[in-house]
Design a binder for these strands. Structure first.
Length: 715
DNA sequence: TACCCGGAAGAGGT
DNA sequence: CACCTCTTCCGGGT
């Protein structure tokens, strides 16, 4: 039985045509690279029977007989590129095994995409236009958000936003050198550029240096509703500030603080983008009235939204982010971090068992977490907006270039087709990539893919998502394989970059050159429905990516099933190897970012906590609700709850749904926009957050889910 | 048979 | 050390 999501869940908005919707690519960004398969990749095999227990033992070593070898060595096979991945990136390019090393190096330098796909991903709407080819007016904005990318060849310094160029000429490049008047000038500029509500300049009677010392929350206090934007803009300036004693952080090598901030920013941006989109949509709606879908895709189009399952839910509107906006207004902006915590990210954790205390989570209290999340999102949105403005042009340009490149490549690819495998690839664009071409491997050509890293730097720079933050300067490629990389250098997100299965799939699906279409392809991008055309081959690629040579479709599909409970994916019933993404790119991105952040924060918190006492204080801190707080360390209490609820156990999500096809849903989708309001609650499913399901009880879950699921529960 | 489902235990990374 | 995201196995269903 599948249950898929709650029926209602599906709504999605489509945008106009969808092109844009999912388009963008991957999620994240990260390009990942697949290295050639280790020589022996085995495909599967093994099964050891032993159950788990055995397995464990097995682990690495191949000890266990059966088991295979898991990675005999950790091959370096894949590597993902870094983080920048996150956003940055770009595109990936397939490499052929053979050429990897060399190619990597080469590639790095120029990544193909001018801009990272992320942008698209994040700001589909805007891009849609772009994508579609026409530069959309609104579209322009997107750029910044995405960040990264933009410049092809050159490194953009920070792709993200370059605020500088837009600043009043009077302002010096380094905020730290600003006088009071400059601060005022800057703030006024922010008001104009970002349409901020109105800043109380009296609260910013300080010089630039002092302003720079304010943290996000400080600024937020002084500028409710706009603090994040101001802060983000300021951080951008700081980041790029040439002089100062500070380290200039290059995008690539951000320094810690910066990185962290950027990280946060990236989240914010993503949210912001969403927010912006929503606003746009709302406006459009208002204007057009309720036509509902948007017609053209204008920029704002709301296209793309996949909303999650519950229809109601997602207010997401085009933007995908649900409520953010709503909340936004009122919202308090806490620090993003705080928000994030509350928010919960998505986690795929184990099943829920706990009941949540709340019971309704959503209903009642969802609030904090949600609100905060919303607030965060909103803040982010604002920031994003700003960025967007900045970058719009850049993006458009980038986009065009990208397209051009794509065109070039076009020849290569083969699309699916059979044989192909091909790979060919292009070098051109992507750079060199090598592609491999390879030989065929089994079913699919298997070639390993290489995904090229993103343009790197860009992302790295700023926002890049979490990931980006870290950066990898080095060459990602060379760096380690995913797994390995973790620690060291970049690390960023390890979590993300291609490391997350859904992210990986998104990247393959959105490969501009369609190089992986014989492994996996969209059936309906607008609705997020895709088909795994070569299960074995895809599993192999995934195995390579994760360094699990024994990966097979069975295992990979198990991983996919974990996404059901989180409402990231659902199975399209009746069609083999056919699944559907339940969240739009923006949401996914957010999930990813939130997840990363949360992770980081949790770690930090844990560390701190250990030192201090966790107990009391912790609770308060975390939860607004304060309720459970149970496990301190664990997830954040409140959020958790909330999240849990939301995600309640798998069952919850899964509703019996029926058909899926894209179509049906689509329509639903459209609705979303409208829904925005209500949904705060709905979020449940939607936002995401947390995948984790910790074992929380199902019960509490949100009503929404609950109802839906009832049945499932049974199981 | 092949796919699909989800529980359980654990690995590995952060 | 806790958490996250799978990975590995498995029994059961379609």
């Amino acid at each position: 039985m599948n249950n898929d999501m709650p029926v209602s869940a599906f709504n999605r908005v489509n945008g106009s045509n969808g092109s844009s919707l999912w388009t963008p690519t991957s999620a994240s960004s990260v390009p990942f690279i697949l290295a050639p398969p280790p020589a022996g990749t085995a495909s599967h095999g093994h099964h050891q029977h032993n159950n788990n227990s055995a397995t464990s033992t097995t682990t690495n070593n191949g000890t266990s007989t059966g088991s295979p070898m898991k990675v005999p060595v950790k091959p370096p096979p894949l590597k993902s590129l870094a983080p920048l991945s996150g956003y940055g990136g770009g595109q990936t390019v397939p490499l052929s095994p053979s050429g990897l090393a060399a190619s990597m190096a080469d590639r790095l330098p120029h990544l193909t995409l001018p801009f990272s796909p992320d942008i698209l991903w994040r700001y589909p709407t805007q891009f849609s236009a772009l994508t579609s080819s026409s530069p959309a007016p609104g579209a322009a904005n997107a750029s910044s958000a995405g960040h990264h990318h933009s410049h092809h060849s050159q490194q953009p310094s920070s792709p993200h936003l370059d605020v500088k160029p837009h600043l009043p000429g009077a302002l010096g490049p380094d905020p730290r050198t600003w006088a009071r008047e400059d601060v005022v000038t800057f703030l006024r500029w922010c008001e104009r550029e970002f349409d901020l509500p109105g800043l109380d300049l009296d609260k910013f009677q300080m010089n630039g240096k002092a302003l720079c010392l304010l943290n996000k929350s400080d600024i937020a206090e002084r500028a409710p509703g706009s603090g994040d934007v101001v802060h983000n803009a300021l951080q951008l300036l700081l980041r790029d500030a040439p002089y100062t004693g500070r380290v200039p952080s290059s995008p690539l090598t951000p320094h810690p603080h910066t990185a962290h901030q950027q990280h946060l920013l990236s989240h914010a941006l993503a949210a912001a983008a969403a927010h912006q989109q929503q606003q746009q949509q709302q406006q459009q709606q208002q204007n057009s009235s309720s036509s509902g879908s948007n017609s053209s895709g204008n920029n704002g189009g709301g296209s793309h939204l996949l909303s999650p399952p519950n229809s109601a839910r997602t207010p997401t509107s085009a933007s995908g982010w649900p409520s953010a906006n709503q909340l936004f207004s009122s919202a308090d902006f806490h620090s993003l971090g705080h928000l994030i915590q509350q928010t919960n990210s998505v986690t795929l954790s184990p099943a829920p068992s706990v009941s949540d205390g709340s019971g309704n989570s959503q209903g009642g209290s969802p609030s904090h977490a949600e609100q905060s999340a919303a607030a965060a999102a909103a803040a982010a949105a604002m920031a994003a907006q700003a960025h967007i403005n900045f970058y719009t042009q850049a993006l458009a340009q980038a986009h065009n270039q990208a397209q051009a490149a794509a065109a070039n490549n076009a020849h290569h690819h083969h699309h699916h087709q059979a044989g192909s495998n091909s790979g060919s690839q292009s070098d051109s664009e992507e750079n060199d990539s090598v592609q491999d071409n390879s030989p065929a491997r089994s079913p699919a050509p298997s070639t390993p893919i290489h995904l090229v890293p993103p343009p790197m730097s860009p992302l790295a720079t700023t926002f890049g998502s979490a990931a980006s933050s870290k950066t990898l300067d080095k060459d990602p490629l060379s760096t380690t394989p995913l797994s390995d990389r973790g620690g060291g250098g970049d690390g960023l997100d390890s979590g993300s970059n291609g490391r997350l299965l859904w992210d990986f799939l998104q990247q393959l699906l959105n490969d501009p050159s369609q190089r992986y279409s014989h492994y996996i392809a969209w059936k309906n991008r607008e609705t997020g429905v895709f088909k795994i055309t070569d299960p074995a081959g895809l599993a192999r690629l995934w195995g390579i990516q994760k360094n699990h040579p024994s990966m097979n479709y069975d295992k990979m599909s198990r991983a996919l099933r974990y996404y059901y409970r989180v409402n990231i994916l659902r199975k399209v019933q009746g069609e083999r190897h056919c699944y559907q993404f339940l969240r739009n790119p923006i949401e996914l991105k957010s999930i990813k970012n939130i997840s990363l952040l949360r992770h980081q924060m949790a770690a930090a918190a844990a560390a701190a906590a250990t030192t201090t006492t966790t107990s009391s204080s912790a609770t308060t801190a975390t939860g607004s609700s304060g309720s459970s707080s149970t496990a301190s360390s664990g997830k954040m209490a409140d959020s958790t709850d909330a999240s849990l609820e939301r995600y309640s156990p798998s069952s919850s999500c899964n509703a019996p749904d029926q058909d899926f096809d894209a179509e049906p849903r689509m329509s639903g989708f459209a609705n979303n926009n409208n829904n925005i309001e209500q949904d705060a609650d709905d979020n449940d499913c939607e936002m995401p957050t947390d995948l984790s399901m910790e074992r929380r009880g199902l019960n509490g879950t949100n009503p929404y889910l609950t109802t839906i699921k009832t049945e499932n529960m049974a199981s």
